[in-house]
Amino acid sequence: MIVALIIIGVLILGSAAAAMLRRNLIHSALLLVASWTGVAAFYLWAGAEFLAFAQILVYAGAISMVVLFAVLLTRQSRDAELPVEPATVTRTASAFAVTASLAAVIGAAVSTARFPASAAEAPSATVKEIGLDLMQEHGAALLIVGIILTVALIGATVIASTDKKRDPEDAP
């Protein structure tokens, strides 16, 4: 079990780190798909099969597609790729410092934390149970999430669409 978890962890972290470091956006997007798939694998490992499917559907399926579209739509020519600026170096350095300190703090906290012992068996979570839970106990939240998704969809469409009347020369 631990071994499987370690392998899954390496997959997740490795692809994510590579995605964050690559200069090519397409590569980054694809590597992120791999990372998200790793997360789905982790869900499977933890016994949350429904979440794993949801993760695959939403992230590996939907969001990655959107990201790829965005990358392609905003792609710039090779010539526009600028050399590394001094500002970029300092930004990277400060980002690294912040990240490292966070990792140190949380890592130390997690490493030294003690958790009460728990059952080795995974809790049962069938789709039926989750469905009932969602519809009964969390019905209101479900509705609100539905509204949020609808608003986000409409908002995204409005933001991304071209207002031809207002500024016609901005049309792509």
């Binding site: 079990m1 631990i2 978890l5 370690i6 899954i8 962890g9 997740i12 972290l13 994510a16 780190a17 995605a19 964050m20 982790f42 933890a46 930004r91 990277t92 400060s94 980002a95 690294f96 912040v98 990240t99 490292a100 966070l102 990792a103 949380i106 890592g107 997690v110 490493s111 934390a113 958790f115 728990s118």
Partner: peptide, 23 residues
Amino acid sequence: TPLHLCLLISTALFCIGLFGALA
């Protein structure tokens, strides 16, 4: 424990994401 490992993995993933967002 596996829990510790999971938490470390998540911490690492969080830090990677944060670094990407910042850098």
